[in-house]
Amino acid sequence: MSTTAIPSGTKWWSGGKSPFNVSYGKVMMWYFLMSDAFTFGAFLISYGTIRFSVNHWADPNHVFNAFPFAGHANLPLAFVSLMTFILIFSSVTMVLAVHEGHHMNRKGVEKYMFMTILGGIAFLSCQAWEWTHLLTGEHVAMLSDGSLGVLPTTVKANPWGADLSHTEILAALQKSTHEQLVEIASTLHHGTQAVAHNVSALSNQELINQISNSELLHATHSGPIAFGGYFFGITGFHGFHVFSGVIINIVMYLKTKLGHFDQRGHYEMIEKAGLYWHFVDLVWVFVFLCFYLV
């Protein structure tokens, strides 16, 4: 059957044909994606509501300024740009796989599906590194009892509040215990073992002097606890979609290799997997906007 242009004035709803002109499976994939869009939308809007309800929110340029193997270099937006381009590129290879499928070119579908899977794995690896970096980070921040301590970024701790003034830092240091002071001093020396041993022998006053005179000290208020929950919850839910997308793509790759779609006479399954994969990229576009750019 050759390709038919749709005649104008076609009566779609008069019966005898599908008014959407696509298979049941594809319509249902679209409806699933629409409902998933509302789920992600609800998460992101909830995050926006909480962010709008407080006076100070974490500045993404301070939270996300690290890059693998770059040490303590201040590189805002760099790593997330890499992640964004990885996902855009894997979207392109996916749509190329769909294109090859339209022309029944099995080798082409295999090649581009393989590249898409690699892109998905690369993205997940980046996310794993970023999460580890935040969860194991050490930031000097004011704790709820008014003392100064060392906090990572987790669902229970957010060290990304407004900056503390020098007077506030001195007052907070007076309330800190010896263990807290040793921890802060070690953090400022990047926690080298020898230094850590040395500082624990110092008195509280010596530690306070050393800390408050340090050029490296950057102390902040604690921020709203909700930050970690929203960040890890939403990027985690997106990451789970990427993960399941990679699994689906691997299944599609194997089915292509086994010749299932050639027997069937069409590569529509690749199109449906492609819809899901592009949706994952689409959601990332909005996560990128809400968490990293603004």
């Binding site: 059957m1 390709t3 242009a5 749709i6 696509v22 022309h103 006479g265 590569y267």
Partner: peptide, 29 residues
């Protein structure tokens, strides 16, 4: 390589996929 063909009553008019990959790369850029 022939174009794929759906033997499916839900698809009344076969979609046109004769275009190249030019548009895909344009959208990538």
């Amino acid at each position: 390589m022939s174009a794929q063909h759906f033997d499916n009553p839900e698809i009344t008019f076969q979609p046109d996929h004769s275009g190249g990959t030019g548009k895909i790369w344009k959208i990538f850029w």
